[in-house]
C-alpha cells in the first residue's frame, strides 16, 4: 500500500481491523482520506466561484490570443516578427554558451551513405568558369590577405567522413564528404590577423549567395572545405570546386562554390537570415 502522509494517525487505515478482510474497503478509506484536503463549497458559493473562474479564464484566453495576434502582426526584423527574432537571438546566446567543440556529430560507415539531392542552386551562376576560380581570403576591412588555388586546398590534410546532413525542411541524408578542415586554412592567417575575429563571411563568386558563420563552428574539427562527395570530385550542382560542409549547421549555411572568405568582427549578412530564418541555425 502506498505511503499516505495525509491520513491522520487516529484514522490510519492499518489500524482498522475491518480492512484486513476487505482490501477494496481499505482502498476506499484511503481515497476518502486523500479527498479530505479538497475544499468543498455549497451550491451558491460553488457556482459563484465557477462563474468567476470562467470570467477570469475567458479574459486570460482573450489576453493570450491578443498576444499571439500581436506577434503575428509585429514589425518584421529581417522578415521575422520582432518578438520571435528576439527569441531567436536569446536562443543563440544560450546555445553559444553551451557550445562544446568536443561534442561531435555522429559519424556513419561510408557504406551507409549515398549521393545527396540537389536542393538549392542560388549563387551558382551559369557562366562560371572553373579555370579562373581562386579562393580569396579577406581581412575585417575587406583587405585581401591571400588567394588559394585548389592545389593549395588539396595540399592541406585531407579528412573523409560520413555524416548526416540536415535540412531546415526536415529531411536528412547520410553522405560522405572529403575535404580540408577550415581550421587548417585559418591557421595560415593567424600571424597576419593575430587573434581571429568572431565571425566568418562566405560568398559565392557572383555574390548571389552568402552566409555568416560563427568562428567556433568554423574552427570545429568536423567543419570542412569540401571538394569530394562519395569519394568523387564535387559536381557543379553540389558546389564545385569548393563548398562548406559541417554537421553543426543546417544545409542553408553550407554554402556551395565558395569564392570569398572574409574574417569579420561583425555578424555577417546571411541570405536566409534576411528571409526570416534564425541567423545561428545551429544543430
Amino acid at each position: 500500500m502506498p505511503k499516505n502522509e495525509s491520513v491522520p494517525k487516529s484514522e490510519s487505515v492499518s489500524k482498522n481491523p475491518t480492512t484486513e478482510k476487505d482490501p477494496s474497503l481499505a482502498r476506499e478509506q484511503r481515497y476518502a482520506a486523500l479527498e479530505r484536503g479538497t475544499p468543498r463549497l455549497d451550491e451558491v458559493q460553488f457556482y459563484q466561484r465557477s462563474r468567476r473562474s470562467v470570467l477570469v479564464g475567458g479574459l486570460a484566453a482573450l489576453a493570450g490570443f491578443s498576444v499571439f495576434r500581436s506577434i503575428q502582426t509585429a514589425d518584421l526584423v529581417d522578415r521575422a516578427p520582432g518578438p520571435l527574432r528576439a527569441v531567436h537571438e536569446k536562443n543563440e546566446s544560450l546555445w553559444r554558451a553551451l557550445f562544446r567543440e568536443d561534442h561531435l556529430a555522429r559519424t556513419f560507415d561510408p557504406s551507409e551513405s549515398s549521393p545527396i539531392r540537389v536542393n538549392g542552386r542560388k549563387g551558382l551562376d551559369e557562366d562560371f568558369d572553373p579555370a579562373t576560380w581562386e579562393l580569396r581570403i579577406e581581412g575585417p576591412d575587406g583587405e585581401l590577405l591571400g588567394t588559394h588555388s585548389m592545389d593549395d586546398i588539396r595540399a592541406l590534410a585531407k579528412v573523409d567522413h560520413t555524416i548526416e546532413h540536415k535540412c531546415v525542411e526536415g529531411w536528412s541524408h547520410v553522405v560522405t564528404w572529403g575535404g580540408a578542415r577550415f581550421s587548417d586554412l585559418a591557421s595560415l592567417y593567424e600571424d597576419q590577423l593575430g587573434q581571429l575575429p568572431d565571425y566568418v563571411d562566405l560568398r559565392t563568386p557572383d555574390g548571389g549567395y552568402y552566409v555568416g558563420v560563427d568562428l567556433a563552428t568554423m574552427l570545429h574539427s568536423q567543419t570542412l572545405l569540401t571538394y569530394e562527395m562519395q569519394g568523387q570530385e564535387l559536381e557543379p550542382a553540389h558546389g564545385a570546386p569548393l563548398r562548406l560542409t559541417t554537421p553543426l549547421k543546417y544545409g542553408i549555411k553550407q554554402i556551395k562554390r565558395i569564392g570569398t572568405i572574409r574574417f569579420s568582427h561583425q555578424q555577417p549578412s546571411d541570405y536566409w537570415h534576411e528571409r526570416g530564418y534564425d541567423w545561428y541555425a545551429h544543430l
Partner: peptide, 12 residues
C-alpha cells in the same frame, strides 16, 4: 472546487 452535494465515492 468540488460541489458539496457531489460526494466522491468512498467518502468516509
Amino acid at each position: 472546487y468540488e460541489l458539496e452535494s457531489e460526494k466522491p465515492v468512498g467518502d468516509s
